[in-house]
Lab assay of single mutants.
Amino acid sequence: KLPPGWEKRMSRSSGRVYYFNHITNASQWERPSGNSSSG
């Protein structure tokens, strides 16, 4: 399961899957890690 705020999306241009955070408006190709504590 993804960390809070993150969701899986697909890029229309490349067709690749990326991850988008609707809370911080951040996007990245790598899967966000939800196990590590923020610090």
Score class of each variant (00 low, 15 high):
A26K: 14
N35V: 11
P32K: 02
M10L: 15
S13K: 15
M10D: 05
Q28W: 04
W29G: 03
G15A: 05
T24Q: 03
G39M: 11
Y19H: 00
N25S: 08
S14G: 08
R12W: 12
T24M: 05
N35Y: 09
N25F: 11
W6E: 00
N35P: 13
S11V: 12
V17K: 03
G34E: 13
H22N: 11
M10V: 15
A26Q: 15
R31S: 08
S11K: 06
Y19L: 01
P3M: 03
P32D: 00
R16N: 05
S11E: 14
P4W: 10
H22R: 14
R9Q: 04
S11Y: 10
Y19V: 00
Y18H: 02
S13Y: 13
S13I: 13
L2I: 05
S38L: 10
W6V: 01
S33P: 08
N35R: 07
Y18S: 01
K1H: 14
S36V: 13
P3W: 03
P3R: 02
G15W: 03
K8D: 02
S36P: 12
K8S: 07
G5D: 05
F20S: 01
K8F: 06
H22I: 15
S11D: 15
R9A: 04
I23V: 10
S37E: 13
W6D: 01
F20L: 03
G5H: 07
Q28P: 00
S14E: 10
S33E: 12
K1L: 13
S36W: 08
P32E: 01
R31A: 09
G5T: 02
H22S: 11
S37M: 10
E30H: 09
W6G: 00
S27F: 15
S14L: 08
S11C: 15
E30K: 07
P4N: 08
P32V: 01
P4Y: 10
K8Q: 11
S27M: 15
W6T: 00
S38M: 11
S27H: 10
Q28G: 01
S33W: 09
R9P: 00
W29M: 06
M10G: 04
S36R: 06
S37I: 12
L2G: 02
S38F: 10
P32R: 00
G34T: 11
N25V: 04
A26D: 09
E7N: 04
S38P: 12
N25K: 15
G39K: 08
Y19D: 00
H22G: 05
G15K: 08
P4Q: 07
E7L: 07
R12P: 15
N21S: 04
F20T: 02
Y19G: 00
G39R: 05
A26T: 15
W29K: 05
E7F: 04
P4K: 07
N25G: 15
W29A: 04
P3E: 04
S14M: 06
P3F: 01
G34Q: 12
Q28M: 06
E30D: 09
Y18V: 01
Y19P: 01
P3K: 02
S14I: 05
W6Y: 01
S36A: 13
V17Y: 12
R12Q: 15
A26S: 10
S38H: 10
P4G: 05
G15D: 04
W29S: 05
S13P: 14
N35E: 13
R31K: 09
G15E: 04
S11W: 08
E30T: 09
S27G: 04
E30V: 07
E7A: 05
R16L: 07
K8N: 01
M10P: 06
A26F: 09
P3N: 02
R9W: 03
P32T: 01
G39I: 11
W29N: 05
G39T: 10
P32A: 00
N21P: 00
S11A: 09
Y18F: 09
P32Q: 00
R9V: 05
P32C: 00
A26H: 14
S37F: 10
S11T: 10
S14C: 14
M10R: 15
S38R: 04
P3I: 02
G39A: 13
T24H: 03
K8H: 04
E7V: 10
N35K: 09
A26E: 14
Q28N: 03
S14R: 06
S36F: 10
T24I: 04
Y18K: 00
G5V: 02
R31W: 12
H22K: 11
G39D: 12
F20M: 02
W29Y: 09
R12H: 15
I23L: 12
S37G: 10
V17P: 09
M10Y: 15
K1Y: 11
S37K: 06
N25Y: 09
K1M: 12
H22C: 12
R12K: 14
N21I: 02
R16F: 05
H22A: 09
E7D: 04
S37Y: 09
S13V: 15
T24G: 01
S37C: 10
P4V: 08
G15R: 07
S37Q: 13
R9L: 05
S36K: 08
V17D: 04
L2D: 14
R31P: 12
V17A: 07
Q28F: 03
S27K: 13
N25D: 03
K1V: 12
S14P: 05
S33V: 14
P4I: 08
I23G: 04
S38G: 10
K1D: 15
T24Y: 04
V17W: 11
E7Y: 06
S37N: 12
G15Q: 07
S11L: 12
E7R: 05
Y19A: 00
H22E: 05
K8R: 12
W6K: 01
G5Y: 06
R16W: 05
S13M: 08
R12M: 15
K1E: 14
P3Q: 03
R16H: 06
K8W: 07
R31N: 08
S14Y: 07
S33M: 11
I23M: 08
P4M: 08
S13T: 14
Y19W: 06
S38D: 12
R9F: 06
E30N: 09
R12L: 15
R9Y: 07
T24F: 05
S13N: 11
G34L: 13
S37R: 04
P32Y: 01
R12C: 15
M10T: 15
P4T: 07
S14K: 07
V17S: 06
S14V: 06
G39W: 09
N25Q: 14
G39H: 10
S33F: 10
S37L: 11
T24P: 01
G34F: 14
G5W: 05
R31I: 10
W29I: 07
A26L: 14
S13Q: 11
K1F: 11
G39F: 10
S36T: 13
S37V: 12
Y19M: 00
S13W: 09
R31Y: 11
I23W: 08
A26P: 00
E30M: 07
N25I: 04
E30P: 05
S33G: 11
R12Y: 14
R31M: 10
S11P: 03
S36N: 10
F20P: 01
N35A: 13
K1T: 11
I23T: 07
N35I: 12
Q28A: 04
S27E: 06
S37W: 10
K1P: 14
N21T: 01
I23P: 01
M10Q: 12
S38Q: 10
R16D: 03
K8E: 12
E30G: 06
G15P: 02
I23Y: 10
H22P: 07
L2F: 03
E7M: 05
P3Y: 02
L2E: 11
T24S: 06
N25P: 00
G15S: 04
R16E: 05
Y18G: 00
F20C: 05
S27N: 04
Y18T: 01
N21E: 02
R9H: 07
K8A: 12
S11H: 15
N21H: 04
S37A: 14
G5S: 03
P4D: 09
W6F: 01
S14Q: 08
R16S: 04
Y19T: 00
R16I: 06
T24A: 03
I23K: 06
I23E: 08
R31T: 07
G5N: 07
R12G: 13
Q28I: 05
P4F: 11
F20D: 00
I23Q: 08
M10W: 15
E30Y: 07
E7C: 08
N21V: 02
G34R: 10
G5M: 04
